[in-house]
């Protein structure tokens, strides 16, 4: 219990003292994960929406595949991205391995199925309500996608939140493709893993609390947005 209490104090001290090394790690974590979520949203939301409204042979199998990919093991993704980006890999020419770009790449692979699968569910429900009206307006199935995404925007925040949660807490993939290089690719989760292996539990716990704090803050902010939207009947 002393470790926990001391870690709280230590975490508070680190944050309040503005420790530049700590903030660099926190900021890099946020930069990598937010970038990955943004890119995954650009891919996953239209993909999920298209799966919700399109009717084509194999649609059921495609939905099962996307849903299954939500549970991709991060270390496997890390390994696959490593193979892609290594010098001998097809994307080796990009020289991205052991850079934040590689970490973003790996997180995009992990997060895109989550956002796509949750988007499909939200948009399918909304489409069931809107389909006849939009057809009556003369809007084709494909052209209805932007409308459905816009009108489902508050519900889709949940998909983004789930994606961010997965990305920011992920360690297996980023440690393989990022390498945990100090001041270059060291993020909160890889630092926690490293400090724990070194026996520096206080710093590891302090970073863990910061990580949890970020998750709670993001959840709370999005929760407030959703409550406001529901009260206004936009959700």
């Amino acid at each position: 219990m002393q470790d926990f209490a001391a870690s709280f104090v230590y975490a508070a001290e680190l944050l309040l003292s503005g420790d530049p090394e700590l903030w660099a790690i926190v900021l890099l974590s946020l930069k990598v994960s937010l970038s990955a979520v943004a890119i995954a949203a650009l891919i996953g939301m239209p993909l999920g929406a298209a799966l919700a409204v399109a009717r084509f042979p194999g649609r059921g199998a495609a939905i099962i595949l996307v849903n299954s990919l939500m549970g991709l093991p991060p270390v496997v993704v890390g390994l696959l991205v490593y193979l892609l980006l290594s010098n001998a890999g097809p994307l080796g020419v990009l020289q991205m391995l052991y850079t934040p770009g590689a970490m973003i790449f790996a997180q995009v692979v992990l997060v895109t199925p989550i956002i796509a699968a949750l988007t499909r569910q939200v948009i399918e429900d909304l489409d069931a309500e809107y389909a006849e009206q939009l057809r009556s307006f003369g809007v084709s199935r494909l052209n209805s996608v932007p409308t459905l995404l816009w009108d489902g925007r508050y519900s889709l925040l949940t998909a983004l939140l789930a994606g961010f949660g997965r990305a920011v807490a992920e360690v297996g993939a980023v440690i393989i493709v990022g390498g945990n290089i100090n001041h270059v690719t060291r993020v909160m989760t890889t630092t926690i893993a490293l400090e724990t292996s070194k026996g520096n539990l206080s710093l590891a716990l302090a970073l863990g609390f910061i990580l949890i704090g970020i998750a709670i803050a993001v959840n709370a902010a999005l929760g407030m947005v959703k409550v406001t939207a529901t009260r206004s009947a936009y959700a």
Binding site: Q133, F137, G138, A235
Partner: peptide
């Protein structure tokens, strides 16, 4: 298709403001 419209028994209103609902119909036309 564009010269006809339909009003349903249970109105399907977009999750937008009152004005934006009318604006949307005009926009898609």
């Amino acid at each position: 298709g564009s010269a006809q419209a339909m009003v349903f028994q249970r109105p399907v209103l977009l999750r937008r403001s009152v004005a934006a609902n009318v604006d949307y119909a005009l926009k898609v036309h």
